[in-house]
Simulated scan of single mutants.
Amino acid sequence: MITKKLLLASAALALLGGWSLTHAAGQGSMAPPAPAPRLGASIDDVVPVAASPALPALDPVVKAKADSLFDDAGDVGETRALLVLRDGKPIYERYGAGFGPDTKLISWSMAKSITAVLTGFLVADGQLSLDGPVPVPAWQRSGDPRGAITLRDMLHMSSGLEHVEEGDPVWRGDTVDMLFGKGAQDMAAFAEGKPAIAKPGEVFNYSSATSVILADILTDALTPSSNPDARRDAMLDFIHGRLTEPLGMTSLTPEFDAHGTMVGGSIMHATARDYAKFGEFLRNHGVANGQRLLPETWMRFMLTPSPNDGGYGGHIWLNRARPAGVGAALWPDRGPNDLFACIGHQGQYIIVSPSQRITMVRLGITKDKQFPALRRHLADLTAAL
């Protein structure tokens, strides 16, 4: 949703050219090379899925609006995958050339909502407190204002920390510096080292660095070890046992930095079908296969408008009005107000409309100037459904 041109260029090299995250940032440096971040399984390491079953006949108007997301690429950018479920069953599924049901695609900031669900598991387990000060050692010195920050503040993007999601030029923002620059080896330490510039809960400030801090807090709750491999394995085991296995999201591949911290704000990979399973889990308010995995109270928290931005809940976007002068995230003037979405850079969407019994996944490459048209197309499609 924001401009990250340098980030994208670096990420493309990292993913397609075999570069590590730190290598992409370290060109020209005379410092000795540090260990590369441990990435997840190969992007291509997915068992091919069975042939898609025949889909039910779709209303011609709905089909035309869905097809337009592929056919009107000049307006909305490249759509690589579009999957629509009604009552949990696919009614439309189409992929761009070179992509298919077994292709893993990057989440970008959709990862934030997955991190929020993982946080909910540990709060439900009693290992973390939503309203207690977060256990970040660097903030525990007497008089440090950061010591008052709570998980609620962080999930509402209101920590008060000096995080700059997008700089001018873009590489001066925290996100690029954290992912590919001086913060790449230990992203959480970079993010946690920022000073407070506002009181916790006072100002909305969308920040990928905040989500990395959350991932660090989760990992510390899972293991006392500072060993990168142990930290990574503890998080992977937790995700497998609490999310990917119960939901069947077998393709989900989170990425980690060199310190073993999950890049919880921006870099996960999964197939469109597995992103849809996550959306269905949210649509069913934390229930999967008839089993409640996430408390209803946590789902209510995630889907309640935050105090400083009504269009944002607990690390998820809501179809509600945002403050005056702030850009639109969804389409509150057109769709139901119970609609919500996980949204990622360049137009990654998991859209959930509970009152319509609909979950939709759109993955692709959309430029900043194309976003108004993409939102109109997605709003048109949801309205037709």
Rank of each mutant, 00 (worst) to 15 (best):
L8R: 12
L13T: 12
L15V: 13
L21S: 13
G26M: 06
P32C: 12
P32I: 10
S42L: 12
L55C: 14
V61G: 04
D75M: 06
V76N: 00
G77V: 00
D102K: 11
L118E: 00
T119A: 02
L122F: 12
V123R: 00
Q127V: 04
P135C: 11
W139F: 09
Q140I: 06
G143S: 02
T150I: 01
L151W: 02
M157Q: 04
S158F: 01
H163K: 05
V164Y: 15
A191W: 15
V203K: 05
V203R: 06
S207M: 03
T210N: 02
V212C: 01
I213E: 01
L214H: 03
S226N: 12
A230S: 05
F238N: 12
G241V: 07
L252Q: 04
T253D: 10
G260S: 09
A276N: 07
L282I: 04
L293W: 03
L294C: 11
G313E: 01
P323H: 04
A324P: 04
G327H: 10
A329R: 15
R334P: 08
G335T: 10
P336E: 11
F340D: 02
I350G: 00
T366L: 02
K367H: 09
D368M: 11
Q370V: 10
P372M: 13
D380F: 14
T382K: 13
T382W: 11
